[in-house]
Every structure is written in structure tokens, then in C-alpha cells.
Simulated scan of single mutants.
Amino acid sequence: MPHPSNIMYLLKVLFLVCQSSILLPVVTGWMWRQQLPRNLRILVYCCLMWLAMMSFSEYAGWAWGNNNGINQSVEILEFWFIGAAYYHTLRLPWRRYFPLIGVVFTALALFDFFAISGLWQAITQTLIFNDTYTTLLKHLLVIGLMLLYFEQCLTELRPMSLWQDAMFVVSVGFLLFYSSTLMLFLARHLITASVGRIVYTGLGVVNLVLHLLLTRAFWLGRHPPPAAVGVVLPR
């Protein structure tokens, strides 16, 4: 029977491999960025941001013993990148309010970080900073974007399989990832330390799936799909 320490080591290695898989969509998207439509190019830059901030977070934790503030910056940047991608994807009459929603979200996030959750104290005193209300709000908003996109797909006639549509592939990956992390966020107080390692490794596998789907989406996005025809569904 494997020793528990060996199992923990293997889980850690698996988690690191899953995290490192961000290089797949980064390399693929950067190679073909000139051929990609604007919404997918924005997601390429989002992947670059994830890679840069994740690397800086690991360095800060190793060098200074404190990476507080970095992951919180990712929360805000991630929302803007994904929101911008869907701003150029969704055909909603009220999408012009997306920038305003982004500004309000950023203001609420900063208020949460510094006035409610004590981020500044965590930075200066090297304390553990737990997930905040911003995480919950961001996940709900992003999942809402996915649902709006799927509704748009249902109202259009497409001369191709949805799995050949790059943004559909992206949306499936995002929905899988954000719904999984949302459930983990809501149940975090029920998870013990020993089970937590396994759960976070499972989340790493979900992260790997997202990276693979983003890679496929960038590959599909090299050639624009046939234009969809809008239809009105009977009510």
C-alpha cells in the first residue's frame, strides 16, 4: 500500500503539471493570434496574464513568503479580459453597459479587499488571506455570461456543429471550471485539510481541461466559422 507521503507527493506533482498546462493555450494562441478574431485574441492575452501572474505569485511566495494582492489582482483582471471577450461575442442590445458593469465590479472588489476582508493587513503582516465576496460575485457574473452565450446559440441557425465553434468550446471550458470552483468556494468550510489536497488536485485537473479546451478553441479560431442566422424561437 502506498505511503501517504508518496501519495501527497504524487498529488502535488499532478497539480503542478495541470497548472503548467497553461503553456498550451499560450503558445498556441500566440502562434495564431494574427488569424484569430478579436474575442479570441483577448482570451490569448488573458492566458498570458494568467501565466505571468501565476509565475510572479509563485516567486513572491518563495522569495518574500507573501503573495497576497497578486491573486486578488488576477480576480479583477480576469473579469475584464473575459468580459471584453464576450462583449465582442454577444449580440445583446444592452452590451454597451458591460464597461459600466466592469467599473462597478472593480469598485466593489477594491472595497471588499481593503475595507471588509483586510487585504492590506494581510500584505503588511504576512497573514493568510482567504477568498472573499469578490470571488463569489465574479464567478456568478462569469457563469451568467456563459449562459447568455448558450442562449444566443439556441436562437441561431448554424450550418456546423457547435463543437466546431471556438467560442462554444471556450464557454464549455469556462462553465466547467467556474461552476467547479464555485462549488468548492461554497463548501470550503466543510473540507478538512487531508481531503483538501485531493479536492484541489481535482480542481487542477479541471484547470487542465480548461487549458485543453482553450487550446482547441485557438486552433479552431484560425478559420472563422460560417455566419450564423438569427431566428426567433416560438414562446
Rank of each mutant, 00 (worst) to 15 (best):
Y87N: 05
Y87F: 15
H88E: 10
H88Y: 15
L90N: 03
L90T: 00
L90R: 05
R91I: 12
L92C: 06
L92A: 12
P93Q: 07
W94N: 05
W94T: 00
R96L: 09
R96N: 13
F98Y: 11
G102C: 12
V103Q: 04
V103G: 02
F105P: 02
F105M: 08
F105Y: 15
F105L: 06
T106K: 08
L108W: 00
A109V: 14
A109T: 15
A109E: 09
F111R: 08
F111M: 06
D112E: 13
D112T: 12
F114H: 11
F114N: 06
F114L: 14
A115Y: 01
A115M: 02
L119V: 03
Q121Y: 07
I123A: 00
I123D: 00
Q125K: 13
T126H: 14
L127E: 08
I128T: 12
I128A: 12
F129G: 00
N130I: 09
D131K: 03
T132Y: 10
T134L: 07
T134R: 04
T135Q: 06
T135F: 14
L136T: 09
L136I: 04
L137I: 09
L137G: 03
K138T: 07
K138C: 07
H139N: 15
H139W: 01
L140C: 10
I143N: 04
G144W: 01
L145T: 04
L148S: 15
Y149R: 14
Q152E: 13
Q152G: 04
C153G: 01
C153P: 00
T155I: 00
E156H: 03
E156D: 00
E156R: 05
L157K: 08
P159Y: 02
S161I: 00
L162W: 13
L162Q: 14
Q164V: 10
Q164I: 06
D165F: 08
A166V: 07
A166W: 10
A166N: 08
M167D: 06
M167K: 11
S171F: 04
V172C: 15
G173R: 01
L175E: 07
Y178A: 02
S179M: 15
L182M: 13
L184G: 03
F185K: 04
H189L: 08
I191H: 01
A193H: 11
A193V: 13
A193R: 13
S194M: 03
V195K: 02
V195I: 10
G196N: 03
V199L: 08
G202C: 15
L203R: 08
G204Y: 00
G204P: 06
G204H: 00
V205K: 08
V205M: 12
N207I: 02
N207M: 07
N207K: 09
N207C: 05
L208D: 01
L208R: 00
